[in-house]
């Protein structure tokens, strides 16, 4: 099984750049299984939250049109080396996961 998260948070000057790659199928609900002809049920991340030392810096609402294994990058100010950046998501099946990484 592939790693579920790949997250990096790099500080340059006073700006921290976060880059994250999440393992998730992001099924739209439109795709058909070619063998059975049945539609593959929708399964996608709906809500992604990013926190810096417990303070929310970004929250994203996603639809099924975000690509499989979503990639997101964003920038914020006010972090120091060693600070914690936490990302968490909830999908349409109610599953969730979170991951944190230290600012480098």
């Amino acid at each position: 099984m592939a790693k579920k998260w790949k997250v990096r948070a790099n500080l340059k000057g006073d700006v921290t750049t976060v880059k994250a790659l999440i393992t998730h199928p992001m099924e739209t609900g439109m795709r058909k299984n070619k063998k059975t002809g049945k539609k593959v049920p929708a399964h996608y991340i709906q809500d992604l939250v990013a926190e810096h030392n417990g303070k929310k810096i970004l929250n994203a609402d996603w639809g099924p049109a975000v690509s499989a294994n979503p990639y997101i990058s964003f920038k914020f100010k006010g972090a120091k080396v060693g600070d914690k950046v936490k990302l968490s998501w909830v999908d349409n099946k109610g599953k969730s996961d979170s991951h944190d990484v230290a600012v480098k």
Partner: peptide, 25 residues
């Protein structure tokens, strides 16, 4: 031109730089 045009919405807190990079279908 997607069936449902909205792909993603990002709410930014103050201090978050207005920059987003992602991948869409």
């Amino acid at each position: 031109k997607n069936d449902s045009p909205l792909a993603a919405n990002f709410n930014l807190a103050p201090g978050t730089i207005p920059f987003i990079k992602t991948r869409v279908k």
